[in-house]
Design a protein around this nucleic acid. Structure first.
Lengths: 213, 213
DNA sequence: CCAAATTTTTGCGTGCACGCAAGTTTGCGC
DNA sequence: GCGCAAACTTGCGTGCACGCAAAAATTTGG
């Protein structure tokens, strides 16, 4: 019985996915990401190597997923949750910053590791793209009259700007002890994200107003 | 002598690159993209398979490069070429449309093939990202006072919006005979591109004005 | 509780990307 | 020309992603 819904099969799938995520992250932290083969992850999770690729399409993906799981949909949810009287720009910007403002403790170590490995950095940056789909829906829901192509453009732009911010942040944190201080490289991720998203505010607001007849 | 400039070594490199591009495109058109191994391309170009990957990091890249070569830098050049009295938004939008408006004839066949193969579609879409770097420089040059992060955000957004347009265009051209006509799916690539970029105009202009003290 | 239908897992084979360490070619000063 | 240093090419080995079809697990209908 078990109140039934998640249909057992579904639960097992999620369990496997979670097991792979966890195993990938643990092994990467223990031995360093370069010393983890996908066979190791699969074995640690108790599945065949082939199955790993049924869940994740690259070696890095599982590690990253352990840190970023669900973030994309939470961004979208945060957008739709904002009260209707705040501007689209504020809603979107705050939502993004909220979700990308660093979470707990165990993620710290992981984040540090990610900044260290080029392959992981690249994969981490790519996960930002995942917000594009959910964000498209969220904006569309918030602005019923808006042209579909405009919605997609805005979502893609927000995603792109967020990517810029994260790229910048990774650049400054990784090579912290670079040349003296030619570029000031702002500071915290939230600040960077806000700075990167601000220039899009006019586009967001103009489109939002235009969509209200 | 040969008036000297491109230092022989460089010329040979470009020749190899071009040979690979040409071979890749020719073979793909002849046999269909799925029936071309990278070994075939390498052999046709007269180099070792390993060398192929010194020039292109995926099998699809050479094929796509044969069609999109230089486009990114031409977009940037087009932006800097526009007279100084046209707005940043107009300069950028027209430049992008100009370069993505379809070129010659032989590209037609290639484009058709690209729309047919999922892997090629994906790779083609990814090449849009290549405009981001050059576009960043072009915008920075055009707007000397503008904040660097803002410049990058704008360039990334334009790139993202262009990607939306191309994605949409590929979607409509590939499944042309889909369901009746629930969505009208605009039409030509230039129109789509303009529609996708228009929403960014307020952001571009606001940033441009702000950068002029 | 059994079997048929659906979904997931697994093994296998192929093609591919890339690090590394020779081998080869080119650039350049003498 | 000569020879050295830098850049490019090549072969090899490893790890990886993924299509495919057989096997195992789960759901569904009786």
């Amino acid at each position: 019985m078990t109140t039934d819904r998640p249909t057992l099969r579904e639960r097992k799938k999620q369990a496997t996915r979670e097991a792979l995520r966890a195993a990938a992250l643990r092994l990467a932290l223990e031995r360093g990401p370069e010393n983890v083969r996908v066979d190791d992850i699969a074995e640690a999770a108790g599945v065949s190597p082939r199955t790993y690729n049924n869940y994740f399409s690259s070696r890095e993906e599982a590690i990253i997923a352990a840190v970023t799981a669900e973030r994309a949909s939470r961004v979208a949810a945060a957008v739709t949750t904002r009260p209707a009287d705040v501007s689209l720009a504020d809603a979107v910007i705050d939502a993004v910053i909220g979700q990308y403002t660093d979470p707990g403790d165990h993620a710290r170590h992981a984040l540090l590791m990610i900044t260290t490995s080029p392959a992981l950095r690249a994969c981490y940056i790519d996960t930002v793209t995942a917000i594009e789909g959910p964000l498209t829906e969220a904006i569309a829901e918030r602005c019923p009259g808006m042209d579909q192509l405009t919605v997609e453009t805005l979502a893609a732009s927000v995603s792109a700007a967020t990517k810029v911010a994260i790229r910048q942040w990774l650049k400054s944190t990784s090579k912290a002890a670079s040349l003296p201080g030619f570029v000031v490289t702002s500071g915290s991720l939230p600040d960077l994200t806000r700075s990167a998203l601000m220039p899009l505010a006019p586009a967001l607001d103009t489109a939002a107003n235009r969509s209200r007849h």
